[in-house]
Amino acid sequence: MKKTKKNNRLTDKKRTAVAAYLFISPFFILFAIFGLFPMLFSFYLSFFRWDGLDPMTFNGLNNFRFIFSDPIFYSSIKNTFLIGLLGTLPQILVSMVIAFALNSTLIRFRNVFRTLIFLPYITSIVAVAIIFGLVFNNQPFGFANYILSLFDVGPIRWGAEYWPVKFAIATMVFWRWVGYNTIIFLAGMQSIPRELYEAAKIDGATIMQQLRLITLPMLKPIVMFVVFTATIGSLQLFTEPLIFLGRGFREEGITVVAYLWRDAFVYNTFGTASAAAIVLFVIIISLTALNLGISSLIGRTKKSKVS
């Protein structure tokens, strides 16, 4: 486009607006095709019977009836929550402790420690699941079973028993994400002004008091962020059980995303898979709303305290 002197401010403004719409349009076009439409179509598809090839036939609420009468579907929801809890709760506590240690001014080699602790996060989930699949092998030669055998505990069938399956998958989640959360907490801790600690020290506050009265309250938004992302992430667990248990999964280790993936791409029942996706969506939205509610509540009490 050539610019001529004749253009007054109005057309200039217009041209800027046109350019701006042009610049932001790729996102909205792509999102409409690959985000919004599939989302809406999922709702549509959940009322149809479809094998991916033949024409879709209307199926009413039967898909929902089917998954809600399938004990494995309930297991998948329960597993998702149990593994999520086992994997994320200790993870958040441990990463906070490590971040606190990393933030200490006493230590040397801070960057070396930080790098090492962060290293698992760059590993792909597939690789993590393969490595831990051998660590938690059912046979006596697996690392976990070998260590247990030193204490005279017999080989555990990690890939087949109720709690061991969940523990093994939760360990994969834990190992990969601790470093990431540590870095987030550390960044949060470093953004707390040092003067606060100095003032507290002058007032004679002990370290535990500093931790309780300064570090934790100031970290609240970061903690909320970490809890939120960890919750959403664990609801989407899929790769670990697939690699660890194979594409049949097992009732002990199947997750919701695994359930819907298996329905769609192993059994070719896209209708029930969509119904499962809708249920997952409802769960995620409810938890998100809960989280937003809690954080706005906390934010409000904090503000009222300050004023």
Binding site: F31, I33, F34, G35, F37, P38, M39, F41, S42, L45, G52, I232, L235, Q236, F238, V257, L260, W261, A264, F270, A273, S274, A277, I278, L280, F281, I284, T288
Partner: peptide, 18 residues
């Protein structure tokens, strides 16, 4: 759009791709 879980559209996305 950041709030939307990506798995929700997985099956229709696959359909679009085919």
């Amino acid at each position: 759009t950041m709030m939307v879980p990506p798995q929700l559209g997985l099956i229709p996305q696959y359909y679009i791709i085919t």
